[in-house]
Design a protein around this nucleic acid. Structure first.
Lengths: 209, 209
DNA sequence: ACCTGAACACCGTTCAAGT
DNA sequence: ACCTGAACACCGTTCAAGT
């Protein structure tokens, strides 16, 4: 594969020895730590390298630029959320609509709220890098998982299904983000779980023929 | 007033002569233009000043730093949206719940979609500066306006009202953002208007006692 | 195969000098 | 009262030299 074919955001090279795999992981972990302790505007490639115990040059051996580093961190965590929702979608095929909605919404909220500090920090990253692109990719994954599951719901035909699923995904993201930006107190997270289930269920029932 | 009491994000000085008022406006406008044509990462204070037809020094006479400049631009546009929703909330007092919801949702969507290019560009700004802070302020304005309006709805008591309104605001933001990030085609905007009304109405009806 | 860190380019910000 | 733009500090990124 030629260098030019690589996305500018992809890792520059694959670690082929054990120590470099450790280095890559250490750099990714250090990025989160620096983000949490210093904030986005004081997140410096030199500082990240220092925290990871390597030199700047080493960082640039695995991540072509700062954006790629942030992108990778964001991708890891968004991927984790998508994975958890996908698992629930598979597990809830052929069940009743309200059971599906409850399962998906709670899986989404729980995944996002597992580490509220990281989730909040990631919103800072999302605009620095092209968060829209990653968000779109994640949305496509959730979209497919939800559509596939909903197609197996007994006696349910939502029209237009595609848009309704987009609405549900955007709504889950928006409401969760709202609670995170408001501080994500345990009480608020609990209410979010309940109310978001009601909102999505009532909506889907209303647009169901 | 002493310098130290000023927020770091507020304008450094008020324009007292006509030409400087023009300068301030030109800089703000140039910021949007550079953002739209070059993107966030190529938005440079020097480039903005150049576009506005002044020197960098002049820019720093009115905005203490780059963040303050971006903050001001974001604030203007968020304020416009908040204002339009507030107006609708005042106009719809004492009407039926579903009329209120329709009015507010459509006002919000229309305000955000009036200039989709600017709205999309602003998401880039929102993380560069402390978008969470401004978002919180805006949410408080909408919160108050909506609560005041809903309290006048005949025969409606939502419990807990405060959280339900937070949910509605986050949902409107999230769903609108989703459509914007998906490209905001006229067809999608139209469907968003309709579906968002359904979602918010059904939700509020469900949590109403 | 992997790591180092001085060196370079570029950008945010200032301030002495101008009108 | 307002504007200019060279100068400075700092950060992203590179690359010749090391192990």
């Amino acid at each position: 594969m030629q260098r030019d074919e690589q996305s500018v955001f992809e890792a520059r090279k694959m670690p082929v020895q054990a120590r470099s795999a450790v280095t890559v992981e250490a750099i990714a972990e250090a990025t989160i730590q620096v983000l949490l302790s210093h904030g986005m505007d004081r997140l410096t490639t030199t500082r990240v390298a220092e925290r990871a115990g390597v030199s700047v040059g080493t960082l640039y051996q695995y991540y072509p630029n700062k954006q790629a580093l942030l992108f990778a961190v964001l991708e890891t965590h968004m991927g984790r959320v998508a994975q958890m929702v996908e698992d629930v979608c598979l597990a809830h095929r052929h069940e009743a609509l309200d059971v599906m909605v409850k399962g998906v919404v709670e899986a989404f909220v729980d995944a996002k709220m597992e580490r509220t500090d990281i989730s909040m920090a990631l919103y800072q990253i999302a605009a620095e890098v092209d968060g829209a692109m990653l968000g779109a990719r994640m949305r496509r994954r959730l979209q497919k998982a939800l559509e596939t599951m909903l197609a197996t719901a007994p006696g349910v035909t939502v029209e237009p299904m595609k848009f309704a699923v987009e609405m549900v995904i955007s709504t889950m993201s928006g409401a969760t983000r709202g609670v995170l930006e408001a501080g994500a107190s345990p009480a608020a997270v609990k209410k979010l779980r309940e109310h978001l289930v009601v909102m999505c269920r009532e909506y889907l029932v209303a647009v169901t023929c």
